[in-house]
Design a protein around this nucleic acid. Structure first.
Ligand code: ZN
Ligand code: ZN
Ligand code: ZN
Ligand code: ZN
Lengths: 156, 156
DNA sequence: CTTAATATGTAATATTATAACATTTCATTT
DNA sequence: AAATGAAATGTTATAATATTACATATTAAG
């Protein structure tokens, strides 16, 4: 999966399968359990590149499990985010699957406000620059959120 | 007001007065109305450098107007944010006053997760870098959120 | 003063997220 | 295989954040 594929039609079935396969591998490696529920919710999130909200996810999940509750979704999200398989987009209160969870990455999220597709772009120099700046003022960084809204090439 | 003042004791009364004065000026220049409510809410936000939530703000505002409702706060926030006088910190669902509203600025927000102080640091090169990246993939940026969490020098 | 636009009041509700405690499932030890 | 303890899930309730809709009041302009 390359970044540019996300802006164009692509074989998304393969894209999804890869994400799930990587998730399996990572969870085995980390010794954590990608249970049926967790895996299914990851699958729902990765079923497109659009950012999806927790309650949208709940609606989808309820197709199979009519009496699922919000906390089911939030627990799975918590697990998936901690495992690095999903990212929260703070400015949307929505979630996307990570397509490069297997490797350490320093990414920014680009969000098309028209089509809602969101994807990560590697931006190591940006992180470098920010960490250098914070070092100068003796600020100890722990986590960084970078979200760029706009219009993708397809929607512009 | 210099950035480093925010990490150290400073004359915050002057800091607050300056923020309100700049707000007055900007609203006159823009031909918008900084009403009593709006100005008071800005004053409450700027009463410290800690990020403050809408309902915290409501509690403070209710000391003077016992029957104020959430929408009063959200309307004022909407106005103040549009005017560039306040920024929302997406990763906290909280708000801070902007100390450089009079000039165009490209800033990142540094948030100390211990003391909750949050302040803006100019980071034009970071914006440059991100805009260059997005240009390459023909993404048209409209807005950018950069929030760096960590520990400030006082809390480390 | 009248008018139209803007701001505020008021009530209800939508959306996002977590707390608390019971029960079940799973892996490990005996 | 049974006992144990930890992790996951079920269930109910509620907290926290934010908006909609419509009525009334205030303001600026003609
Ligand atoms: Zn990622
Ligand atoms: Zn788009
Ligand atoms: Zn100050
Ligand atoms: Zn600012």
């Amino acid at each position: 999966m390359h970044n540019d594929e996300l802006q164009h039609p692509h074989n998304h079935q393969a894209c999804l399968e890869q994400a799930l396969h990587i998730a399996d591998t990572i969870c085995v490696k980390k010794g954590v359990r990608l249970t049926t529920i967790r895996r299914r919710i990851l699958e729902l999130i990765c079923s497109s590149h659009k950012a999806i909200g927790a309650y949208e996810l709940l609606d989808l999940f309820r197709v199979e499990d009519a009496k699922a509750k919000p906390v089911t979704i939030y627990r799975a999200l918590d697990f998936l985010i901690t495992a690095g398989l999903v990212h929260k987009i703070e400015s949307l209160n929505a979630f996307i699957g990570c397509l490069q969870a297997e490797k350490q990455h320093q990414s920014v999220i680009l969000i098309c406000d028209q089509c809602k597709n969101a994807y990560e772009l590697n931006a190591a120099p940006v992180y470098e620059s920010l960490f250098t700046m914070s070092k100068k003022i003796q600020f100890k960084p722990t986590s960084l959120t970078i979200e760029l809204h706009g219009l993708c090439v397809a929607c512009a």
